[in-house]
Design a protein around this nucleic acid. Structure first.
Lengths: 113, 113
DNA sequence: GAATCAATATATAATATATTATAACGTATC
DNA sequence: GATACGTTATAATATATTATATATTGATTC
């Protein structure tokens, strides 16, 4: 680990403070820790999509997709807007978006050291 | 979402490429998506600790802690070194450390906009 | 060098939670 | 009221969590 990172974190939270956030953070991670949900969220980073569009793009059966969307809604990670018969999903402007960006940088941007 | 982020991600991976990584990333997230394991990993960012030290610091029963450590070892997030009767755990120098740093920045550093 | 103790790991089993498929239901439009 | 688009309910299966009990490994003492 880098000395910088170490120093940054060492100066940080107490165990008690850490514990008080661990639950919240762990819940968010749990919500994102399913391949389908991760794909959904990553897709929504590009913009909003209807359920049908997600279904096609991600090749998931419709009720299965809808169930995952329900989980994401429950965690406040996504929000919906209705447009006629269709329902469009988009990312909530929150920590989840930051997390996805971080995940993207860590896992999807090639090492350019 | 910021336009920068959006642009960054839009230029990124195809759905197929994304899918090929979703499994790996989701597994890592799943491993970290438990409050106790998250606390363990966050603690190890400070440096290496023996099981006994972690037990006291995090107030977990020994077998319970050991079970979580086993999960973290299985995912390659931590590694061990033996010193006499004690076993010291430390973070593996990998993506997990980056992720924890990102989580820390997102959730533990106060908004300094 | 066998008995013992301290530190940690593993096995077992009970319970809870998540995943997935299928089927039934709601809601908007025509 | 029929059709398109989504959601929710139900139920079967799989996986995770947790507690308790047992095993392993290294150090110590006799």
């Amino acid at each position: 680990m880098s000395a910088e990172l170490k120093a940054m974190l060492k100066a940080g939270l107490s165990t008690a403070e850490m514990a008080s956030r661990a639950g919240e953070v762990a819940n968010l991670l749990k919500t994102l820790s399913h391949p389908a949900r991760l794909m959904i969220v990553c897709t929504l980073v590009e913009g909003s999509y209807s359920v049908g569009e997600l279904e096609e793009k991600l090749d998931l059966h419709q009720p299965h997709l809808s169930q995952h969307l329900t989980v994401l809604r429950g965690s406040g990670i996504v929000e919906t807007r209705r447009e006629g018969k269709q329902i469009f999903y988009s990312l909530t402007e929150e920590k989840a978006a930051q997390l996805v960006a971080a995940l993207y940088e860590i896992f999807c941007v090639e090492n350019q050291k």
